[in-house]
Design a protein around this nucleic acid. Structure first.
Lengths: 307, 307
DNA sequence: GCAATCTATAGATTTTATCTATACATAATA
DNA sequence: TATTATGTATAGATAAAATCTATAGATTGC
């Protein structure tokens, strides 16, 4: 059974003539003849009664017409859907994002996205970068918004946002008054830092190492929000992304303290498995992120405009 | 797009592996690869993300899975239906029959048939033989039960029933008492005969012609039932099929009168367009007719046992 | 009966599908 | 970090199929 033969069959059924169907299908009459013959052979039934000016469907032929039309409709429908890159209702995809991204960078973009693709269900996985990268490598996520840098032979990244990661202290901490401090002073204080498997922590550690000092860590956590709270109530001080603490700064619950000669910052970027193909609905979201921030050109170069 | 490729595709989607799908489909892995590649090319989208131990469907791939499964189901269903010669609900066929056949010969057979094929809708066309043959030639009926003989190069016939066609008179007609009459006596009486385009009439005319007499026809009709009534009330006398008048004879409303030396009879048979293919549901009915009466062997010889 | 029109068939040709062999990439393992 | 096992992609050869041309055989309509 062959989709072309089905098409010939329907045309014959409709026109009542092999010759006319052949003209309609832009093939020769023997082609239609053998197509029908092949169908009849595999089905083991006669589909038409010949021998007149017109051929007439048998009962089995009428049965096949019923099915063939349905099959044909489905084939046309799916080709149409796919070629227009329509998304089936209920269809969706998964992506990853770190806490800061999903909380501060993406909300507006996701809101717009829902308007553009209302039928696409989005599933955002929120976790530390390294877990998100695992998902990428296992093909469980389409892409992820993670902390950079992240070096892996099978992962590509494009930066979209550089976020400073200043030293923040509670409003009543001694540093709050003096507005700046040296690294030597800082390591004397109880520090609340990200867990060692986080990229932000790695950045902090690198700066300390460059300066030849080692911090007195009192707590390690994975949740920046929790860390913010702890700093606010004076449990310790911390280097936290500006995105995370902006509100507390505005409210006066936290204060930024310059650390002489050392700038802490981390980048946030989009990461994906190298060579991955992006469906139109997914590419739309990624490109909306780049448009809102930066990196569209780099992305286009890496993925290839042609797509 | 090709049904085999769709099958490969579904297998890959299910197993997450081209190689495994190939093993499942009993083809080589490159066959699956090129099948998927061909689908992707004609659709213009990527269906799988490769590059891992397992391949993973893209959104478009998931869409195609949806459709491919439906298409596959329909294909299997129709193949099953046709190979088992099942009849789709509401499907049916048309056949022709003369009045006497549909009234006296077929009722029990049709009743049995409804039990064997309850979902098949039968449409019986009741008309004089020559019109029924027109339907056969135009492929509007599958077969017809008509009066014989009927000679046409494109129509085959098999006799199933020989019906005598005696002279019948009303209970109070003078002939009723004497039990027999000569043709010379008969032509003096007002005769009610079938219309000239009927086969039964032709038979009667031939007998008269052989005897060298010509009847005094007072009425020509197409309805044997109406003729029976007219004879009963004494409008005239008639040669009518025994099937038609049996009840009236039993009731005493009509009497049979032997006509010296002349036997009138007509045959009823099944006719079909030469070379016609019969669906199983139709053949079943025809063969039920032959089994109930006669002619099964002749039919099988003419149609071919192989079918 | 004849011309026109239809379907079937045979044989040649082209296209498509499949296979074998192998390259290349990735993931797991030592 | 190299190695092995397992996957997919690709090139070229082969097999299968679909299609075409040409023509025969049949039927309808004039």
């Amino acid at each position: 059974m062959n989709l072309y033969h089905l098409r010939y069959f329907l045309s014959v059924a409709q026109t009542g003539s092999f010759s006319q169907a052949a003209r309609e299908m832009h093939v020769t009459q023997p082609t239609v003849s053998s197509g029908i013959a092949e169908l009849e052979k595999t089905m083991g039934v006669r589909l038409f009664n010949r021998g007149g000016k017109r051929v007439v469907l048998t009962m089995e032929g009428r049965t096949l017409v019923n099915y063939a039309m349905q099959i044909q409709d489905l084939v046309e429908e799916v080709e149409d859907h796919l070629q227009r890159r329509d998304v089936l209702p209920g269809e969706g995809f998964q992506f990853g994002a770190i806490d800061a991204a999903v909380t501060y960078l993406l909300p507006d973009i996701l809101k717009d996205y829902r308007r553009a693709y209302p039928s696409v269900s989005l599933s955002a996985q929120v976790a530390p970068s390294r877990y998100l990268v695992d998902d990428l490598l296992m093909n469980r996520s389409e892409f992820a918004v993670i902390s950079l840098p992240y070096d892996h032979p099978r992962v590509e990244t494009v930066s979209i946002y550089r976020d400073s990661m200043p030293l923040v202290v509670g409003a009543f901490h001694p540093f709050a008054a003096q507005k700046n401090a040296t690294l030597q002073e800082v390591v004397q204080e109880p520090l609340i830092l990200f867990h060692t498997d986080s990229i932000s922590r790695k950045i902090v550690d690198e700066r300390f190492a460059e300066a030849g000092v080692s911090p007195g860590v009192v707590m390690e956590m994975r949740s920046p929000e929790a860390m913010r709270k702890l700093v606010e109530v004076g449990v310790g001080i911390s280097f936290l992304p500006l995105l995370t603490v902006q509100e507390s700064l505005n409210a006066g619950a936290l204060k930024v303290v310059d650390v002489a000669g050392v700038a802490f910052s981390r980048e946030i970027g989009v990461a994906w498995r190298r060579g991955r193909y992006f469906s139109a609905a997914i590419r739309y979201l990624i490109e909306a992120i780049f448009e809102a921030y930066q990196g569209l050109e780099v992305w286009e170069k890496k993925v290839g405009i042609a797509k």
